[in-house]
Design a protein around this nucleic acid. Structure first.
Lengths: 210, 210, 210, 210
DNA sequence: TCCTAAGCGAGACGGTACGTCTTGTCTTCCA
DNA sequence: TGGAAGACAAGACGTACCGTCTCGCTTAGGA
């Protein structure tokens, strides 16, 4: 049976309405009625497509969004270092910046608990995969990769939320650079004078500045 | 005027009821009626003490909880390093372990958005204060302290949530030790063989103990 | 659009429930919840139909009831005298007798103030219309018709309430006859011996029948 | 035991507050809190004096008011006609006029059902007594006196309410005169040309116009 | 081109929770 | 001891959403 094009249209109207409303009043304050009013649809129609309510609609949208990011980051070649190419976190910061209001509403302080769960799952999985690709073959991390993945996810997320909240003039590039550095070298890198540890990094940095 | 002891009793009943219910069905699913039923109080009485509903009660409780942690961590002596004494993060991990169910409900995936905000505010402020106390006098960090504070908060929080979710057998001490290391030295510390960076720390410690 | 028959059903259920409850516990003591419980409806549904609460429901019922009475009285032919045919007040007394409990609750001592207002408005309007139809063409009353209408309404109402309160054996017919006489001839008719005034009436009747 | 003067003071404050509030917002809308706020008393104190709430206070006040009217009307000498002296209804109309706002709130459309009951009881009793005093000794009315008393009470009350509602310029004297006439002679007196029945009245009226 | 199943608008309905209001009781303290 | 202050239980209020449902209208896509 051929799919009715009206269905696609309806879902698109609902998606668009949700985005608009999130930017206007925040996700929590939105009712199903709000969405269908905005989309010029009947409330019952909403439940026809998303029987579990607005969370289901948001989740579906988030999933697609995350697919977006992941594809932008792309698959690192095996053995490629985390410092090569576009740093993954830069993609994240840029994406956040472009969709600031949406992020603020969904991921930040007023975000949806249930949504965060799915977000965290897919993001940490993605991070884990990245880390694995960095590991030189045969090297075993001395800490569970999940630990590191959640560490990075939590840090990245919190920093993005902080960044978006204070509309201060730090660029995405600078954020990404500092974030990468902190992840790689830890706090010491920021509070210590240049040491051997720094030299190690510099070596690598020079390498890809070629 | 002397403080009515009934008030204290009532609030304690409400607090206890909320905790019980969070462990039973999760914060989101709790109604004010649930709480007052459990506490054997009238619903109106609830609003007498917490006019803004259950979020206000939870926030008040969280604030006290955070005061708890902060006092356990105590004020580090000036110049004392984050590596000396009990690491602050160990206190956090232990506290989370002792109140696992509560953390799971409040801070984790099903946590309350509005509550997270306040939680983040006070915690990052506290972290910032800690970092400042570590800084050698006169040393200027090359990155906003807020950036670092949110970085640490996000990472710590995510790692705790992950840890509590997978009831795996990592001890709080081990978690804290790994966390501290990751914060201090970054990923390199885990994926690189032992380098000067470690020796460096020791060197610094001696340096400050002069 | 076709009228949803469910709406009619729902309103009928509410009406029936209200009557039952009035007879059981009096109007004042009834809550909206009582009514919807009895009618097996949701409380919110009640407000869907009567947004102003139980008073609105009662008023709507009273209006229909008054329509009933008015139609029973019917339109007197022009020039027909109040003494011809079935006296309007007899209809009122009979109606009160048939719905004694309802009247007792609504119009009597425990009646609803706000309801009385509407009741008085429509009833006096109706009485006024009756009086006008009695007036020989061209005759101007020497007193405002409103005055007379409220006079009659008040007197009739009070007498009905008294009658219903003391379950004494006066028949509706007797009540109506006495009431009509008192209205027509005043107290003198009862405390004075038969005078010309009576003969006069008869005279007039013949006069108008020409 | 000496009566505590504070008790009298407290009750007086409550009475005054109730009157003020009735004039401002109507009896129904008043809460006990309103009254005690206005009287600068504690709410609990109110219940100390009137355990059954505001109705009890109002009833006590109404009883005293009715005592007032009754004393103003005074005891008619035996055999005195209803047309002699100051007509009782004039006292009623004047009293209503002087306390218009109070009447409007208490007796009129928004009056209190329970209060009306007591009001009707004492007033009809009083009317009955008046009628009895008019009756020539030995004359038996052909209708129960209660019937007539309620008839008069209802008519008088309704007419007063109507009068007060429409702030029209009919004087109390005119109202009383018309009312008395309607009671005495019935409608016929107003709609008929001068007849024998009228001459009868005129005879009596001239008598007391001396 | 028709017709038929679907998508859809409209809105009634039962339900649940909300936050507010008022009532009447009780307890504690003050003058 | 009378009163002020106010905590408390009880319970109704009117509102807001929810998710389900039924009813017709409209329309797309297969016949």
């Amino acid at each position: 049976m051929k799919i009715d094009r009206r269905v696609q249209r309806t879902r698109q109207l609902l998606r668009a309405a949700l985005i608009e409303l999130i930017l206007e009043k925040g996700y929590q304050a939105i009712t199903v009625q709000d969405i269908t009013d905005r989309a010029n649809l009947g409330r019952a129609t909403f439940y026809l497509h998303y029987p579990n309510g607005k969370d289901e609609l948001l989740l579906k949208m988030m999933e697609e969004t995350m697919q977006d990011i992941i594809q932008q980051i792309g698959q690192p070649a095996a053995g490629e270092l985390m410092t090569d190419g576009v740093p993954p976190s830069l993609v994240a910061f840029q994406h956040a910046q472009e969709n600031a209001a949406f992020y603020r509403a969904v991921v930040g302080a007023d975000g949806l608990a249930g949504v965060m769960h799915g977000y965290r799952q897919s993001t940490t999985a993605q991070i884990k995969q990245q880390i694995e690709s960095w590991l030189p073959p045969g090297v075993q991390p001395t800490v569970p990769l999940d630990f590191i993945a959640h560490f990075i996810f939590g840090a990245l997320n919190a920093v993005i939320v902080w960044w978006l909240e204070n509309e201060n003039a730090i660029s995405a590039e600078e954020m990404a650079q500092r974030f990468q550095k902190l992840i790689r070298d830890g706090i010491n890198g920021f509070t210590q004078p240049q040491t051997d540890a720094r030299r190690l990094d510099r070596g690598r940095e020079e390498q890809h500045r070629d």
